[in-house]
Design a protein around this nucleic acid. Structure first.
Length: 769
DNA sequence: AGACTGACTTAGAAGCGTCTCG
DNA sequence: CGAGACGCTTCTAAGTCAGTCT
């Protein structure tokens, strides 16, 4: 590309930086002076009345562009246009070369995609494979076990199922079981245990979807039937004796205002309610729910007294705890009944667990970190807000009596069963299946297969980005350095976010100058970069890392003439980065590096840490340590649990006690020594010895306690669950279990075993990531 | 080309049930 | 045998990323 313009490129860049920083400031100014409408507001208002304050997105865009242009004109009239063209040209070139590649095919992911089959002449719908016909190469080895599966039966099953549609999936299960004679024991158990009603109990657990062919046409299912979501229970007004006070006097609230008041009252103990933004947002939205009389009178949140409501709710939850066993059981049974009815759907002949079948109840929005919208009212979702997705030929879910769904659609290109638009960000929320379901499991498996493919070409990619550090083009260098961070530090991609709509957090591509510090030398190491920023969920990422000289020099270059609030990578965004990655490997995106590095780290660490001679707890400790290494890599943290303080306090008092003990023991030792000096007898000398030993012992105990405390301290900050659930190829863990004869239950609980059933079934001890 | 949006994964906190220890 | 610790489940916010629209 623009080969000989390397340095010019950098210079031009500093120009861009200036305008960038200005844009930033401008945005801030903008935010202060102009009330920006939210997406959801737009949504809500679009249909009804148009808001005068409301700016169309395109108009806004336009204005922004205008402003930016203006600035550029002022700052560096001459080269700005040039640069623009230059940039555009390069982009164009890239786009061309990219689009030439055409679309990638996702279906090859697991390496067993069949050739684009034209099958299904006999398939009513014609867009999905019946599971039987071909087995993949990859799956062949499992075939011995399942060969007996009479393929024809499967076909028949399908056809039958289609004919009778959804009618009765229990029957399917029976058939399913008939088909698997080898599982006799279990089958029998099930038959006897649940021949009738109980059939529903773990019916599908043995469905090995991973042995079946996957659809290659992008359809996610052929048949889908469910009962629709469960709505939040209606609001129950407070009993008369529980009163809200305004300005010290009881004030009877209207039902709608009262409901919102209870949301606040329930959170009264939470730190949230003391935050300005929270209170402001809450009060604004609360007032919207008030009747005009209330609006006139209740003008100051500080004069509102919710304490009686709060007490009432506390008493209620206390009462719930005090319920008798029978009452508790009754509630439990009722919950189970609801779960049975609404917690499952039928997808392609199999009864599958739904992940979240309850619609989110109304309440106050609790954003993470410093969220500008904290405290806003999350409104109640009604049937007319909900879109249902199911098979045309299924029994459609019935909306609660007297209501209607917003829409019933039949889109089998998506996996959700129901959706609605949430009013805080205007985003869509979905009802989807449980992680144990086929649809989630396949995707998960595929994710790890992509990461494994990265393993085979990661060296090439690394060499390339190292080369790119020397590129003459700024954008290439930035891309290469960013990729290095993503690879080495497991940073997230870092999409751009709309300012003022969410908490100010960043990922790799959205890092700003203020988030890194460069130290040519630090603690005896050269070229140290210090990272300090808030990532996803406003979790702080803090890390100091020595980098290669080239990276360091590049970073210095990127920082030149920039303000703290300017983008570090001003020539890069996630879309550019991912397009590049896509060219390097099919299906490669930024997040694959996280998966890859997490899994490979686990595998390495397990190899390194496990001793075959160790006993079981020691091995499990090794596993947890390996897991922790990954959690640290991925920066998976959690706030210390509430009980943590107490636990630590207890520990601390123990330590303090020990310290006291120690000092008194030391005193005793001292006086014993003094005695010995004056008395010079054996007895006193012995006393000195015993005192000495006592001091030593207490010192040791103290040290132990202190170590325990720090250990706990460290551990409490790290969350192992997220990496275990989302980043570590379960087959690595399963292989490890098999190799060292460790029961899987020791590392995966029931839910996790359900989610990873595919891995548990297919991985043997030789599995290598 | 860039904005917007939909669909889906990833994330920590809260809630809840059970186990343990005094 | 009750309180607190702990592990699991539920909840839903907050990301990623690709496709569509303008």
């Amino acid at each position: 590309m623009s080969g000989d313009h390397g340095y010019k490129d950098y210079q031009m860049d500093s120009g861009a930086r200036i305008s960038d920083s200005q844009r930033h400031k401008d945005k801030h100014r903008d935010k202060e002076h102009k009330h920006k409408d939210h997406k959801k507001d737009k949504e809500r208002e679009k249909s009804k009345h148009s808001n005068s304050d409301h700016r169309e997105p395109s108009e806004k865009k336009h204005k922004d562009r205008e402003r930016e242009k203006e600035k550029e004109r002022v700052k560096h009239k001459d080269d700005s246009l040039e640069r623009h063209k230059d940039k555009e040209k390069r982009r164009e070139e890239k786009m061309k070369s990219h689009s030439a590649d055409g679309k990638h095919k996702r279906e090859k992911e697991n390496g067993f995609a069949s050739p684009p089959r034209i099958k299904s002449e006999n398939d009513d719908n014609g867009y999905y494979h019946s599971p039987k016909h071909e087995k993949s190469v990859k799956r062949q080895f499992e075939e011995d076990e399942v060969e007996y599966k009479p393929k024809k039966v499967k076909v028949e099953n399908e056809k039958k199922a289609k004919k009778r549609k959804h009618e009765d999936y229990y029957e399917d299960e029976e058939e399913e079981e008939d088909v698997k004679p080898k599982k006799k024991t279990k089958d029998k158990k099930q038959e006897t245990a649940g021949g009738k009603k109980k059939v529903k109990k773990e019916p599908e657990q043995k469905w090995k979807w991973w042995e079946e062919e996957r659809a290659t046409d992008g359809s996610k299912w052929r048949f889908l039937e469910h009962k629709g979501p469960v709505f939040a229970p209606p609001y129950e007004p407070l009993p008369g004796h529980v009163r809200f006070y305004y300005d010290g006097k009881p004030f009877k609230l209207s039902t709608s205002a009262e409901e919102v008041a209870t949301f606040f009252a329930k959170m009264l103990d939470h730190e949230y309610t003391t935050k300005d933004a929270f209170r402001k947002n809450f009060f604004k939205d609360w007032r919207k729910e008030m009747i005009s009389e209330e609006k006139g009178k209740l003008t100051d949140l500080n004069k509102c007294d919710f304490s009686e409501l709060s007490e009432y709710f506390k008493a209620q939850s206390e009462a719930r705890k005090q319920m008798t066993k029978e009452e508790k059981l009754k509630i439990k049974e009722e919950n189970e009944r609801i779960l049975e009815e609404y917690g499952f759907c039928v997808m392609d002949n199999h009864r599958e667990r739904i992940g979240n079948f309850r619609i989110e109840p109304p309440g106050l929005f609790r954003g993470r970190g410093n969220h500008p919208k904290m405290g806003m009212l999350k409104r109640r979702i009604r049937p007319q807000d909900v879109i249902i997705n199911c098979s045309k030929d299924s029994k459609h879910p019935k909306p609660p009596s007297g209501t209607k769904w917003k829409e019933v659609r039949h889109d089998n290109k998506v996996t959700w069963l129901a959706s609605w638009t949430e009013n805080i960000q205007g985003s869509i929320k979905y009802i989807m299946l449980n992680p144990s379901s086929r649809i989630k499991g396949e995707k998960d498996w595929q994710k790890y297969e992509t990461a494994r493919r990265l393993k085979s070409c990661v060296d090439r990619i690394r060499n390339q980005y190292r080369e790119d550090w020397k590129s003459k083009e700024m954008r290439i260098r930035q891309r290469a350095v960013a990729l290095y961070f993503i690879d080495k530090l497991a940073l997230r991609a870092g999409n751009e976010k709309e300012e003022g709509e969410t908490a100010d957090t960043v990922g790799c591509c959205s890092l700003r100058v203020e988030h890194i510090k460069l130290y040519p030398e630090m603690d005896g190491q050269e070229y140290v970069v210090e990272f300090d920023f808030l990532g996803k969920d406003s979790i702080r990422y803090y890390n100091k890392m020595p980098v290669e000289k080239r990276v360091f020099k590049n970073l210095q270059l990127f920082l030149e003439n920039k303000q703290p609030e300017d983008d570090l990578f001003d020539r890069l965004n996630t879309s550019i980065l991912n397009k590049h990655l896509q060219e390097l490997m099919e299906g490669l995106t930024a997040k694959v590096f996280r998966t890859y590095n997490a899994s490979i780290t686990l595998q390495q660490q397990l190899k390194e840490l496990t001793c075959s001679d160790d006993n079981l707890p020691a091995k499990i400790l090794s596993y947890n340590r390996a897991n922790r290494a990954v959690a640290i890599l991925c920066n998976h943290q959690r706030a210390p649990p509430k009980t943590f303080e107490k636990t630590m306090q207890n520990l601390q008092t123990k330590i303090d006690e020990k310290k006291k003990q120690l000092s008194s023991a030391k005193k005793e030792l001292k006086s014993a020594k003094a005695d010995a000096k004056t008395l010079h007898d054996d007895k006193s000398r012995k006393a000195v010895e015993t005192k000495k030993k006592a001091v030593q012992r207490i010192e040791e105990q103290l040290m132990k306690l202190e170590v325990q405390a720090t250990d706990r301290e460290e551990n409490k900050q790290i969350a192992l669950g997220t990496s275990k659930l989302n980043y570590l190829d379960p087959r690595i863990s399963i292989a490890w279990c098999k190799k060292y004869e460790i029961p899987v239950e020791k590392i995966y609980n029931k839910t996790q075993r359900e989610k990873f059933a595919w891995a548990i079934d297919m991985a043997d001890e030789d599995f290598e990531f």
